[in-house]
Design a protein around this nucleic acid. Structure first.
Lengths: 187, 187
DNA sequence: CCAGCATACTCAAGAACATGACTAATCACG
DNA sequence: CGTGATTAGTCATGTTCTTGAGTATGCTGG
């Protein structure tokens, strides 16, 4: 149900093709939702069938023909209805957290290795988000941008993603440190 | 695939019934995974069939007979295998974030109301986590507990959950404040 | 005394999500 | 000159998760 609205929200930025959307929803820039291309193409088909978006074919001489989508008026209304509905609280669903929960029953070194890897990955995402944020606000300060711009949604969600990944790095590093100090003492 | 391991990890704490697990995996204490009772009962059936857990019936005079489960040796081995496998990075999947992403296309007041509600909810979860953490470490300091105890997995995952909800509160409040100041200026 | 909540669990069905394989053209690199 | 990456998408299958309903007992508040 929510991928639908995630796609509509993404299309507010402007006309996009399924392929461009797929890139945006893939690892990295998925600062507010994640989905694979197959799901997106299927969702776009449904959304167009329901009249919430409209697509137009763009023939390119050097690339395959693509289909660009824009949100229609019924689409905007649907988004409004969506924001009025009650949200279900989001939950953490992360393999790594399950591993840490089980750390007392398995080899801690394995978990430490996973934590190190995740810390690196999360740090890379922080960098990525920093870059995205800088590009969005341009030469303006964050305050100025957030006060003036008429498209701040993506910036705000990107901020949330950046903090999330920063906290991920901090937690992974601290947890790994704790596990390391325990294994040296206990041996 | 991961619910399986989440259940195994949860059972490391001790013998639990499906119903107790369901409580733990429900809203609130789901500090490392979330699942509904139906899924859990189904998963427990599979896990027992595969020999990863073993259950025993406990007849109660005042309550219905319940079935308590413990992790078997093959279950422990499966958990070890799980921690050795590579994790897929976790993504945010949150209706509220989608709403904020779409905020430029809908009525901001609706989104502000959602942010306020979520901030309250997240604050309540922070309280809950604080309580859980205090109960786990007892009269010891956090440092002492993490250095000495032989069951720290749940504490570590709880710490992650607490930070996550704290950041949720901060982000919701800041985002709502930004949206509020914009609507007063623009009108 | 009975309505409602807590314990303890089951069944069925559908929506959402993931996995893997496939087409087909262009461009850049060595 | 051909190998691999990029653009642009489709099809099929399977797993996982959610929704909704249903069973049965006992304890607790008004």
């Amino acid at each position: 149900m929510a991928l639908k609205h995630a796609v509509l929200a993404a299309l507010l930025t402007g006309e996009l093709s399924g392929y461009q959307l797929a890139k945006a929803f893939d690892v990295g820039v998925a600062n507010f939702w994640h989905a694979l291309p197959q799901q997106l193409y299927a969702e776009l088909t449904c959304l167009e069938r329901d009249g919430l978006i409209s697509g137009r074919d763009v023939v390119q001489d050097t690339r395959p023909t693509k289909r660009l989508f824009t949100v229609t008026d019924p689409g905007h209304a649907e988004l409004q209805r969506f924001t009025e509905a009650s949200t279900k609280p989001s939950f953490m669903r992360d393999d790594l957290v399950v591993m840490v929960h089980a750390v007392d029953g398995v080899d801690p070194d394995t978990v430490i290795a996973q934590l190190d890897e995740r810390a690196r990955f999360a740090a890379a995402k922080v960098e990525l988000f920093d870059g995205l944020l800088a590009r969005m606000r341009g030469d303006r300060s964050e305050e100025a941008f957030l006060a003036e711009s008429d498209r701040i949604g993506p910036y705000l969600t990107c901020l949330r993603g950046r903090t999330f990944e920063k906290e991920n790095v901090a937690w992974c590093e601290r947890t790994a440190a704790i596990l390391r100090s325990r294994s040296t003492i206990h041996v």
